[in-house]
Design a protein around this nucleic acid. Sequence first.
DNA 1: AGCACA
Length: 492
Amino acid sequence: MSSVSSQSQFRLTQPPSKVLHLRNLPWECTEEELVELGKPFGNVVNTKCNVGPNRNQAFIEFADLNQAIAMISYYASSSEPAQVRGKTVYLQYSNRQEIVNNKTTADAGGNVLLISIEGADARLVSIDVLHLVFSAFGFVHKITTFEKMDRFQALVQFSDVETASSAKNALDGRNIPSYLLPEHLGPCTLRIAYSAHTDLSVKFQSHRSRDYTNPNLPVSQSAIDANGMLNCVFVGYFDGLDSVGTTGRDGCGVYDSRWFILGRDGGYLGWAEVFSMGLDGKKLEPESNVLLASIENMQYAVTLDVLHMVFSSFGPVQKIAMFDKNSGLQALIQYPDVQTAVVAKEALEGHCIYDGGFCKLHLSYSRHNDLSIKVNNDRSRDYTIPNNVMVNPQPSILGQQPVATHGPPSHLYTGAQFAPTTEHSMIPQPSSGWATGFPPAPNSMPGQMNNNPYLPPGTMPPQMGHGMMQMPSHGGPPHTHAMPPYRPYQMQ
DNA sequence: AGCACA
C-alpha cells in the first residue's frame, strides 16, 4: 500500500540490524575481504559482495546484533575509515535482518560457471581464448557461448565445484590478459557467477560451443577455419618456472610456442598452447613459411650448408638459423612462401640426412614468419643478402663434406644425389630443383633412397591419405597442388 | 556512495 512508499529511501538513522550494508567497495572485493573487515567485531556468518549495478556494494551479516553495532560504533568515531584495498568503505545497518540466499547454503557453487564478458570487443573473444583462460585452473570439459540481454556470455563446465570456484575466485572481475587477445581489442572483463547447470549439452564442436571430452563429436562448419582446422588448446599446469622464459608481450606470454598463464597475484599458474586440430582429432600446427627442424641421432655434424642444400631442393631458402636446444640441434629454415614449406615438410619429415638413420629430421611449422639474421656465420645465414654486404666472420665452405663426429662420413645428400634412383622418375634434377614443381616423393628423402631400412619405397607415411588430407579447404597434398612458378635460384 | 534472486 501507500503507507510504505511514503518513507524516504534514505533515512538518516537506520534501525540496527545484524546485517550491514557496505558501499563504495572496489569491484574486485572478495567475500574473504569482507570477513576480514568484520572479524574484529564479531562472528561474520554470511557475506554477499559484488552487489548492485556497479558491483561495488556488499553485505556482512554478524551472528549477533551487538557485533554489528560494535562495528558501526567503532567506525562512527574512528579517525581511520573502514577500508578495503585502500578504498574507503561506507557502512550502515542494512534494512534487512538477514542476508538471503547465497552462502547460507555454504558456497552453493556448481561445477559450471556463468561468464559474462564485458567490454566493447567482448564478442570478439574467441571460445579458444576462454578455454585457455579457464584451463589454467583445471580440465575444462565443455564451453558454450551465447548472447543474452545484449551481453556476451559463456558457460564453462569443470569437473567439480572446487575447480570451478578456484577459477571463479581468481578470475571474477579480472580482464582477460591482453596478450591472449588480438592486439586491437580493448579490455574484456570477466564477470563470473555459478550456473545452475551441472552438465552442458554440446551437440557440435562449433565456434560457439565445444566439448573437450568428446573427440568424436561432429564438427560444425563454423568451427573450421580457412585451412580446415579446428582451433584447440592444450594446457598444462605448474610444470615449473625453470622452463619458462619471458619473450612475449607484456613480459609474459609466448615461450617456445606456449603461452604461460599468470594468476591474479602474478604467480605462475601453468602453460597453454594453442594449436589447430584436424577433423580427425590430430594436432596440426598452423602452416608457416618457416620450418623448425630438429635433428635426431646426430652422428654427423649437420652444417648450415648441408641444411641449405637439403632444404633448397624444394624452393629457395631465404634464411637459416641454427641453435642448440635441449642438448640437440635445431634450425629454422625460411622459405618465401608457405606452400614451399609445406611441400618441404611433408617430403622431409622423419627422413634422415645421412644413410643409416643418422641425422633424422623432425619438422614442424615455426611461429615465425621472418627470421632476423643479425650476422652471417656458420650458424645462421641470410641468403637473400649478398655475401659482401653482411659481415661474414667465417667464410662459407662450400665443399660439402660432412664432418664426422663419430666414425667415417656416411653418404651425404647432395644435389647430385637427387637424381631418381627409384620408380619416382619425375624427381627433378638439382639444376631444375624445386622449380619443376615436383617434390620428391614423401618416402624418398634425397640421398636416402638406397637401401634405407627406414624408408620402404613406395610407402606412404601413415599420416598421408587420412581424413585431414581430404578436406576440401585444406591446401591439399603437394602432388595435387599448384607449385610455385619457376624462378631461377642461385645456390651459393 | 545509498539495499540484493531469477
